[in-house]
Design a protein around this nucleic acid. Sequence first.
RNA 1: GGGCGUAUAGCUCAGUGGUAGAGCACUAUGUUGACAUCGUAGGGGUCGCAAGUUCAAUCCUUGCUACGCCCACCA
Length: 903
Amino acid sequence: MSAQNSAELAKTFEPAGLEAKWYAHWEQNNLFRPDRPDAAPYTIVNPPPNVTGSLHIGHALDNTLQDVMIRYERLRGKDALWVVGTDHAGIATQMVVERQMEAQGDKRSNYTREAFIDKVWEWKHESGGTITGQLRRLGCSMDWSREQFTMDPHFTKAVVKVFVELHKQGLIYRDKRLVNWDPKLKTAISDLEVETRETQGGFWHFKYPLADGIKRDDGLDYIEVATTRPETMLADMCVAVHPEDARYLSVIGKEILQPLTGRRFRVVADEHADPELGSGAVKITPGHDFNDFEVGKRAGIKAGDMLNMFDAEAKVVQTSDGLVPEEYIGMDRFDARKLVVEQMKEAGFLIPHVTKDKEGNLVEHDFEPRTIQTPFGDRGGVVIEPWLTDQWYVDAAELAKAPMEAVRSGAIEIVPKTWEKTFFNWMENIQPWCVSRQLWWGHRIPAWYAEDGSIIVAESEEEAHALAGNKPLTRDNDVLDTWFSSALWPFATLGWPDTDAPLFKKHYPNDLLVSGFDILFFWDARMAMQGLHFMKEVPWKKLYLHGLVRAADGAKMSKSKGNVVDPLLLIDKYGADALRFFMCAMESQGRDVKMDERRVEGYRNFATKLWNAARFCQSNGITGSTSVSAPAATSAVNKWIIGEVVETLAALDQAMADLRFDAAANTVYHFVWDQFCDWYIELVKGNFDAETKAVAGWVLDQILVMLHPFMPFVTEELWHALSDPTHPRDDELIVAAWPAPEASVDAEAKREVEWLIALVSALRTAKNELGIAPGARLEAYLPDPSPATRAIIDANPAVIERLARLTAIRFDAAPASAAMQIGAGDANLIVPLEGVIDIAAEKARLEKALVVSQKEAKSLEGRLSNASFVEKAKPEAVEKARADHAMHAAEAERLAAALKRLG
RNA sequence: GGGCGUAUAGCUCAGUGGUAGAGCACUAUGUUGACAUCGUAGGGGUCGCAAGUUCAAUCCUUGCUACGCCCACCA
């Protein structure tokens, strides 16, 4: 793995070719995880993308941040491990394969379970994992040699073990209760997979007649009930009224004779019924509504006795009491709703909703229009049906205790901290987690049923048989929620349950987890639960949550809106480095990233700028340094730039420690462009002595290392291009050493260079404002300079001549003639311009500056003359005000004197 | 109903208890031993509104307005 070449750099930076070249080189030479057995570990596990997935812009953000951290820590010498792999994504993958079958006129039911699963594996091997290639294009330096899949045999082993252990501990149990049922996918889903959306619906009012001629106190022979779901009437089991509602006291316990079904059921008292709402009476369908389920249980109805009127596809089936009219059987739930309303209306039990039209006439409607919060399945996209089934549940409330404590104690640090409240709020109110799914693709639940109904949970079929005493057993048909397995990612990928696995011993707990806040509950919280429960240690020390990448207009990107931005197209256009830098620069904590292609373009330009600076250095015989510590420097410019590296490095390290990706990126950006390119190179141009070459080469190297985590490709290319053929680099940049300048800021050199910069800038501004050609060579006078200023001038003739474009600075009195006045530090240079400038223009310029200085001075004077400011303000603040005042006052005086000279 | 976030230059965003910065866009310009994917100079903001705390508030507190997100059983 020798350095590739040090050929002359091309005129323009072309990302595409070198990205492919360097990625392959890194991967082939195992540079993503070099052998560092004695180094301290640094570990991040990548959120496993769905095996069916492709790289979207959110992945680009998430993975860039992780790669920046991994590359940074690798450069700092750590044994940096970035675990990568894909998720089997139960529902998503099964859907993909089924859709593919449909396209070929085939379907899942044509296969046995085993044959279908084989088909899915076949699909996975052929088409799965597109995204892993795309992550490579982004430059992600994961440990591909240990690529994982959540259905790898060792991973499955971990999943089974966790299930069995939790069951033994009573933390997983089977229960019959209402579950969120997706009638399209025909599976249960968890609360988190339900998305509540607003839909336009209706609110229907019906009369429920009292049976046997019973009448209420007010003489009415019916109770009014209202519902948004009339079809559930077919499985109603009672009507609830508030126990203290005077209107209904006399009918509590009496029977209703329900129309349509002829079912008889009681009026029950339950505090769930709110007397303020509608009629105060509510129909109860315990088998198809979460609230009603609870009311039903309180009314003494057992879960097993609750009437069910739907099959798995939410088509109407006969209830156990046989009272659903024949015409409903097999009907879709929404058609059933229409028919119920129609029949109730015909029978005179519909209470119309009355409104007034424009003329004030009363108009009758079947229902009152309403906006309804409707639950949808996030995968299937259809309305969820609460359905009474047997499912496996995890006691999430118990498992949530340790993670909450870990966050409270700081064992897990959530960054940014604002998410803690959300985390606690969810964890404190957590519900049992339904983990069984009625799918084929996934981890099959390790539970077996005997004919007598007993349940055996075991790690294998043999063990189950042994436990059952050789009774005939049938295995549970269901698989586990995908998130159940991905919750084990931080340790199952490292070899657990083999607790002696070296990787596991060294890399658990992980150091950092980076994830979008959208999966905080789905994944992060569950990793914390399983990690703490089984390892007794946090899965990661820090949890960094970032936002969403939004479209340019701030809208959420979605396929249906057609506003998705493909990160791969951005990479094609601007290069991976530019996209990565954009993601970092825009990633300030606690805010979404808005897509701004112009900005990506700007960072591509930045890469070009660096490229050209390196090319210029190269053409002047500058080569890479072989030393991490700064070379010895005698000239002020060289001392200054070394000091700037020291300061930049400190700011960068701080930003990285704080996980401030934006600050980190901007720090390097401004150093490269504003300091190194704009000033250092300009200052040393034409004077490439041995010291300057050494310093420039060293600074350029530090730039490449500091920038490498953000822009790995262009920096690696330049690193090699600048390699000295006689002293080749020891290593690729990806495994180079993080800067350790062992130098400090030289205050005197800094003052000197800043004076020169101020002089050059002031001259440029003045020339520009007076319309003098920028290239004009002028002579300046500086009578009685301070010794320090004079020393600077004497030491930098080349800069004065070339950058300031002054033929000379004379220290005697200026001739009495038209001149412009240039301020730099404490010095006021007089540049005679007989016949060149318009004196009025120069006067106007000086007057403008004078007004500014006077205004500043006056404002500060006002503050300083305020007794309470001088008494109460911090001494530093007073001191600074005094210094600023002196400076502005002197400036004003200087300008006034200059004006006076002009007459 | 509860929780959170955001409101700063035309746009996208940083930032600080001592009256503001970047990138892009805009205007003028093109002398420079790399770079027009560039250089140089410049214009542009009562830091959402109101009150309070303070010697001092864009920054702290409270209220309000607007937008966004998450959670929640109103039949």
